[in-house]
């Protein structure tokens, strides 16, 4: 039994937690941005998928890794723009638009991948981001290998989180975004364009989702597989609810979730002979549902979430 406790005291476990958490953190913060502005973005799963593909393909075709991230950022932003034209400007159903965007983004990604690489049976690999040692800190026992020997993309993701906190909590734009999701009429009364604020939030948020997808192909792994997002986008949506739409809690939620995921992989190696692997793979999805049930009592949705804003119409 002691082996199951010892897992937590290995640096590898903590390093894996950070690695698993990164795409989730980026996607969850992206979804928080959208939903705080009043727009549910169910396009997340597809946007992560096409972000993973575009980021990887850019590097595969010869660009450097940072250009790969930039390409994912742009494609994510474009799909965010499409989502906001439908849901913000035209007031179409956010649920159905999101599902449509997910279908379009993932199928378009697969189509382009097959078009460029028609006959690849084994997915080609790129040289992904390599871990770098943070001077001095990486030499610390335990803490060093756990937290200070990650890839630059990982540190970039953490910078993005800090940027999102700052944006949401300390800038006029952040305040406008929150107001667009709570009381858009009041925002309009201030002379601020609700459509524009919501669009900015959805474009930024979707760009982050795509970068979260690109983390998988550029840092965590080195190839693009069909279906590699494997529900991470939906898990991120559950995490947003678990985090009560707060970026800092989303960070904690994603880390907690990734920790459990990293733990189950290691526990699986110990107990694999007794319990079939499929039950371990089910855990993240079941945990997400449990997390939503736990959060249900204190759930307070942004008041204007799902409600299209129409100029000149009173609610």
């Amino acid at each position: 039994m002691i082996e199951f406790i010892e897992i937590i005291f290995t640096a590898g476990f903590w390093a894996a937690t950070i690695r698993i958490a990164c795409p989730l953190i980026l996607a969850t913060i992206g979804e928080v941005l959208c939903e705080r502005a009043g727009v549910l973005n169910l396009g997340i799963e597809g946007i992560m998928s096409i972000g993973a593909m575009v980021g990887w393909m850019t590097v595969f075709l010869g660009a450097d890794l940072y250009t790969g991230i930039l390409a994912a950022l742009i494609i994510g932003g474009l799909f965010g723009l499409l989502h906001s034209i439908f849901t913000v400007y035209l007031g179409a159903s956010q649920h159905v638009t999101g599902i449509g965007i997910t279908m379009l983004a993932s199928s378009l990604g697969f189509f382009c991948f097959k078009l460029i690489l028609p006959a690849s049976t084994t997915p080609p690999k790129i040289k992904p981001f390599q871990p770098i040692d943070i001077p001095l800190l990486s030499e610390l026992p335990f803490l060093g290998p756990a937290f200070f020997q990650h890839t630059p993309f990982t540190y970039l993701a953490i910078l993005v989180v800090i940027f999102a906190f700052w944006l949401m909590n300390s800038t006029p734009l952040g305040l406008s975004i929150k107001m667009a999701g709570e009381n858009p009429m009041a925002l309009e009364a201030q002379g601020i364009d609700v459509f524009l604020v919501r669009t900015i939030a959805v474009v930024l948020g979707s760009a982050l989702m795509a970068v979260g997808g690109a983390y998988l192909t550029l840092s965590a792994f080195d190839a693009f597989y069909f279906g590699m997002i494997n529900g991470r986008g939906w898990i991120a949506i559950a995490l947003v609810i678990f985090a009560s739409w707060k970026p800092e809690r989303a960070l904690l939620g994603a880390l907690l979730f990734a920790g459990l995921d990293a733990y189950q992989v290691r526990a699986q190696q110990l107990a694999g002979a007794i319990i079939p692997y499929q039950f371990f793979l089910m855990l993240p999805f079941l945990l997400s549902i449990v997390a939503m049930v736990i959060a249900a009592k204190r759930t307070r949705y942004p008041k204007a979430l799902l409600i299209p804003f129409r100029r000149g119409e009173r609610h």
Partner: peptide
């Protein structure tokens, strides 16, 4: 799949 997704939108 692209045609189906475009049809939805």
């Amino acid at each position: 799949d692209v045609i189906v997704a475009l049809t939805v939108l």
